[in-house]
């Protein structure tokens, strides 16, 4: 558990760096690092498939998409973020962390829960047999994404809107 907490803290640190870094490329890399750590956390929680997905898809594919976008919008790089945001961040984060710990210990520690039976089977069986409807949803959402990207990058033949 201690090691897990260290990993979680590292993930928060990487994400904080992604938020605060001035350079977008560094931010994207920090985000990928945070995904990598989350993947390891998933693996250690006994969810190897979710870990692999997190590492290969989120840390890999999504980071590539981010890099591509950053490359395509190079000149827009120099958006000035306000300075106070960075200075105020540690203060806000500290206040939040205190509230967070207070709430989690005070209220959520008393979450009532039904006793559950341990589940049987393998991951594949659960995904394909129990949650088959989700697979249809996955197909639909991939289709929606592909069609959206096609629509957003289509050639504008006769339409001059602005």
């Amino acid at each position: 558990m201690t090691f897990q907490i260290i990993l979680l803290a590292a993930m928060i640190a990487a994400s904080a760096f992604a938020v605060l870094a001035r350079d977008l490329l560094k931010a994207a890399v920090a985000l990928a690092v945070s995904s990598l750590i989350l993947g390891v956390i998933f693996f250690r929680m006994g969810a190897p498939y979710a870990g692999v997905f997190e590492i290969s898809v989120v840390a890999g594919l999504i980071t590539v998409l981010f890099m591509l976008t950053i490359a395509l919008t190079k000149q827009g790089d120099d958006v000035r973020e306000s300075k106070t945001v960075k200075i105020a961040f540690p203060l806000f984060f500290l206040v939040f962390a205190l509230i967070d710990i207070f709430i989690m210990r005070g209220i959520l520690a008393k979450v009532p829960a039904l006793e559950g039976a341990a589940e049987a089977g393998t991951f594949g069986e659960v995904l394909w047999k129990e949650r088959s409807f989700d697979l249809i949803g996955q197909l639909a959402v991939i289709l929606a994404g592909v069609l959206s990207v096609l629509a957003l990058f289509r050639k504008r033949d006769r339409h001059d809107h602005e």
Binding site: Y49, F53, E119, V126, R131
Partner: peptide, 13 residues
């Protein structure tokens, strides 16, 4: 909840 397999498939989705 001791139902990591179910949760895992939700996370993958």
């Amino acid at each position: 909840r001791k139902s990591i397999l179910l949760a895992q498939s939700l996370v993958v989705t």
